[in-house]
Design a protein around this nucleic acid. Structure first.
Lengths: 110, 110
DNA sequence: CGAATAGTTAGCCACAAGGCAAAGTATTCC
DNA sequence: GGAATACTTTGCCTTGTGGCTAACTATTCG
């Protein structure tokens, strides 16, 4: 589990920005170099690089430099953290729904 | 669909904070009044209220005042936006995996 | 070698986010 | 009616985020 909450926090902070979500989506189609990734966005390269670093430090992507080119890859495992959290929430309110149904049942058959 | 991206943005921004995630989790167990919700957190009420407003404007919770008490309720539909986005990502990279498998297959049977 | 390419570093700026204290407004209780 | 309760509003402060320009450091191509 290794600090689930802090990790989840990083992932959510990273995804709470449209540019970064677009990058995640683009990388879903396969690895890309920085320049290629940056092209669609109306911002300078240094600004774009900040987003890349946020994504990298959240663990959502990995990057690797070979020669003068840096290539980015999506790390799908990290998105599972979100799945897990959502599942947890669902389990919380399903438990509650069950309790409510018990109440209703008891009222129906007193 | 009504501006899916902006809505998703609001939801993710709201969830990208541990305090607000805890509130969502607490409300999963049922509606609660502001004071009750705020109690576990080491911050003043005005600060806490800012979080409540962020959650409310993201649509993740609804609030309603009766007398001097404001009650908060979780709006589960909003979490579905996240489910949808995750499903979309999965479909993107599953499509890619399929393409890769085609390549492998072609290489195996040239 | 020299020029073009691909990032990177450094430094700056504006504004949003998250926190506080203090004072204000309804409600509700005695 | 007066005191206690349950938020609300105001105003302020610090830090973090996202963006820019300009200058710098490799690589690679001709």
């Amino acid at each position: 589990m290794a600090n689930y909450s802090a990790d989840l926090d990083g992932v959510l902070v990273a995804l709470a920005d449209p540019t970064r979500r677009h990058v995640v989506q683009a990388l879903g189609r396969g690895p890309k170099r920085i320049g290629e990734l940056a092209r669609p966005f109306p911002m300078t390269l240094p600004s774009f690089m900040k987003h890349v670093r946020v994504l990298e430090s959240s663990g959502l992507i990995r990057t690797q430099k070979s020669g003068r080119v840096r290539t980015c890859t999506l790390n799908r495992d990290r998105l599972a953290l979100l799945d897990d959290w959502l599942a947890e929430q669902r389990s919380v309110w399903e438990a509650r729904t069950d309790r409510l149904e018990n109440v209703v049942t008891k009222e129906e058959n007193p």
